[in-house]
Design a protein around this nucleic acid. Structure first.
Length: 321
DNA sequence: AAATTGACCAACCGCGTATAA
DNA sequence: CTTATACGCGGTTGGTCAATT
């Protein structure tokens, strides 16, 4: 006799999430939070099981989730912690703010494990060739020190290494004893107030004079719009100026942004939601206006899309900080 | 150009555990 | 204390896309 299924599989959808489903989930959690995952799908009007909703939220939709490539410091932290505690992905994730256990697990299985296996083989070859005492690092000798410019923390106890790496991530601007300025860590220097990798950074081919190319794609995923508008994400020089002008470093500034976002997306139905004083007015860049237009076009294509025009909660407790 | 292979990652599955009744 | 329920975690799968043959 097997375990009872968590939900009636015949009545729920599975597979990749559509933008509409994402939108419904975000809207619901914005408004009501997530106290009961099992009841959430029904209340939110989603044909998904609660587990699926939870996973989608935690791994992808959560506002503080960090996307983009892992930094060498993050990879080193994963390696060190895995050496110490094994496949405790959620525990490892707790040392990497914004990273999910699923993402870390994927990175380990697809990149780091293979890299370590390769490095271990190299170590054996080196050992046999040199017949020297290069094995006294007992287990951590295979750390990714082969990458030039890595922090040389192999001499530290494993957990101390992890803590060290964590501190480096938290304070990328701070000078650490063995830090260098390898190209791989240049993102830190350019993102002083936000150590997150810049996944909104235009890639080669998308750039024209340093500006993001606005694609007139009516199906533009609304999350891309949100990302592009997010003042917490480092983007272009123009956006940085925009962020400074609007004081987005403060909670009041973020609140202003959210009001602006609602207004631009046409989510406010009356003047009550609009800024009352001049201090709350945000100046939009042309690309923000364009992106919002794209979203509205996409929304008109999916009329069943239902959005709750509520403020995105910004409190640390909501963000799980 | 078509077929195959491999890498990547989002999502699913089932088990262990915490908690409320 | 026992049982039922829900959540969280770790292992695994399957779809997509790019590289290779």
């Amino acid at each position: 006799m097997g375990r009872a299924p968590c939900c009636d599989k015949s009545k729920v959808r599975s597979g990749p999430w559509s933008p509409e489903e994402d939108f419904k989930l975000i809207s619901f959690i914005q408004k009501h939070g997530h106290t009961n995952w099992r009841a959430l799908p029904k209340q939110a009007g989603l044909l998904r099981c609660g587990k699926s909703c939870r996973l989608r939220w935690i791994n992808y939709l959560r506002p503080d989730v960090k996307r983009g490539n892992f930094t060498p410091q993050e990879e080193q932290t994963i390696i060190d912690l895995h050496t110490s505690i094994g496949n405790k992905w959620s525990k490892i994730a707790s040392y990497l703010p914004g990273r999910t256990d699923n993402e870390i697990k994927n990175v380990w299985n697809t990149h780091l494990k293979k890299r370590l296996q390769h490095t271990r083989k190299s170590d054996v070859i080196d050992y046999e060739a040199n017949d020297s005492s290069n094995m006294d690092c007992s287990g951590s000798s295979y750390s990714a020190s082969s990458t030039s410019g890595e922090i040389n923390v192999e001499k530290l106890p494993i957990l101390d290494q992890a803590v060290h790496n964590f501190e480096v991530m938290k304070n990328p601007n701070e000078k650490h004893a063995s830090d260098d300025h390898s190209p791989s860590s240049s993102s830190h220097a350019s993102n002083v107030s936000n150590p997150c990798p810049d996944h909104t950074q235009p890639e080669e081919g998308d750039v024209d004079n340093g500006e993001i190319e606005i694609r007139p794609d009516p199906d533009l995923d609304f999350l891309q719009v949100l990302d592009s508008l997010d003042p917490l994400q480092p983007t272009t020089t123009e956006n940085n100026v925009w962020k400074q002008e609007n004081n987005f470093e403060s909670e009041a500034g973020i609140s202003k942004w959210l009001r602006f976002l609602e207004s631009e997306l046409g989510l406010t139905s009356d003047d009550d939601c609009l800024p009352k004083d001049q201090d709350s007015v945000i100046t939009a860049t042309p690309q923000h206006t364009e992106l919002c237009h794209n979203f509205q076009t996409a929304e008109s294509i999916s009329p069943e899309l239902e959005y709750c025009p509520v403020m995105w909660p910004c409190s640390p407790s909501y963000l799980g900080i």
